[in-house]
Design a protein around this nucleic acid. Sequence first.
DNA 1: TAGTACTATAACTATATGGTTATTTAAATA
DNA 2: TATTTAAATAACCATATAGTTATAGTACTA
Lengths: 107, 107
Amino acid sequence: MDSNQLVTILKALADPTRLKIVGLLSHRNCCICELVPIFGISQPAVSKHMSRLKSAGLVVETRRGQWVFYALNHERLEQVRFALGNLPDYSAEFERLAEQGLLVTCE
Amino acid sequence: MDSNQLVTILKALADPTRLKIVGLLSHRNCCICELVPIFGISQPAVSKHMSRLKSAGLVVETRRGQWVFYALNHERLEQVRFALGNLPDYSAEFERLAEQGLLVTCE
DNA sequence: TAGTACTATAACTATATGGTTATTTAAATA
DNA sequence: TATTTAAATAACCATATAGTTATAGTACTA
């Protein structure tokens, strides 16, 4: 997973409604019409949140008759946890700074 | 850590510049004037990013002469990883839905 | 003490975001 | 087939965000 993907996923998680949706889905799959009364926001608002989570790869959808059920992609969440524990190595940036004499070294 | 705090931290991480700053700080403490040439954005822009990371508890600052050095708060990042792996239990929400007859059960 | 270097704050701008209502699409049912 | 229900899309609005330039504050240094 590259940094841009990670940012996309973090943005998807960085909203109180969507974070709670992820928590709800970790307990049970849900459809939009169940989430609407939980959050007290409009159906299109929930729909857009799901679309955001889906494009971040955090949920997958399954049509079930007239309902669309959303399930948490646990693996994706694990990938985020792993990425946050294994940030990219940016030592080349410091080498470049050093070459330009821009590294600050006190004491 | 409550959900609001987690959202605040995730928002702080959910930006390409700040995420890279966190990655840089995981390698070496930095001051603003080192980050400016790395990102090619203005000094106030970097300053505001650091302020955002600081208020999320992700970095701590130490004044060192005329410089202010920022260090990553590794513990805070670990707290985020833990929280994402241990989301709150929202089963009460489903019980409430069931009471209202709003749980969708197919098959 | 005057000047210089680093950082923070203020004021502003353009874009992203999270909500709304209205409408359309899709599927089940009378 | 007409109606109803669920979900998605469109158009819009208010606020948040990430950048800018200008200025103020803070700490070394000549």
